[in-house]
Design a protein around this nucleic acid. Structure first.
Lengths: 120, 120
DNA sequence: TCCATGATTTGATAATTATGGAATCATCAA
DNA sequence: TTGATGATTCCATAATTATCAAATCATGGA
């Protein structure tokens, strides 16, 4: 079920701490950021932040990788674009819509442009 | 508080019934649709739908107008674009981002294009 | 080993949100 | 008025979500 996935994404972003964390990661770029940094930067206790990052991860909006004893969370641009595409799908009855696409300009892994408004 | 408004919008969309209703309204265009129609189309009891439409309205994502004894809810494209703009703000550290804009192609009231990525 | 550090899990509590039948409101036509 | 119709509000119940101290896990040195 496609919409279910979208709903999880929207719900994940619909919280002050998570939206702030996600935006910080979006700014951070493909490199991502460590929980300890985000915790300090956003003023969120580590366990609470961990809970919220888990939600974002569960929703597929961020990815994690480990380097030594620290983790690096990074925004998943493709997932974000997918969300936006779903919202704007069919929005203009077939015309006048500029594509909503966002790709990290920094080097990083090349993300393919997300599918757009497949009309029926 | 800007983010608070965005959070209300995201939370409003992060629900199966509301996302379905909003998308139906997005498809319906500026004309909008009546609750009774949506209720039947989406299979949602009238009181429940009314509750959810109120949430969408409270979040500023839809507008309402009355015609006789029926109401017409319509998607607010500018609000939707504002949401998307907020999410993609700073997403690419300043480059490579196509603008995310959606305007109703049908006649209707002309919506100004939403503000995009005002960098700091 | 043992310690220090970065991070998550546990768990108990608090707060918020969703549901839909019944009652009520709003408008119009006869 | 009265009746019919479109829609919302009330309200009790159910379900979900958030918080963070304390405990635990994971990794890399000394």
């Amino acid at each position: 079920m496609e919409s279910e996935h979208v709903i999880r994404g929207l719900a994940a972003l619909a919280h002050e701490a998570r939206l702030a964390a996600f935006r910080a990661l979006v700014e951070a770029g493909p490199e991502g950021a460590m929980p300890s940094l985000l915790s300090e930067r956003l003023g969120i206790p580590a366990p609470t932040l961990s809970f919220h990052l888990a939600q974002l991860k569960n929703a597929g909006l961020v990815s994690v990788r480990r380097t030594g004893r620290s983790l690096h969370y990074a925004a998943d641009y493709a997932a974000m674009n997918g969300l936006i595409a779903y919202l704007t799908e069919n929005c203009c009855a077939g015309s006048a819509c500029a594509p909503s696409v966002c790709v990290p300009a920094i080097e990083g892994v090349p993300h393919e442009a997300p599918a757009r408004s497949r009309r029926r």
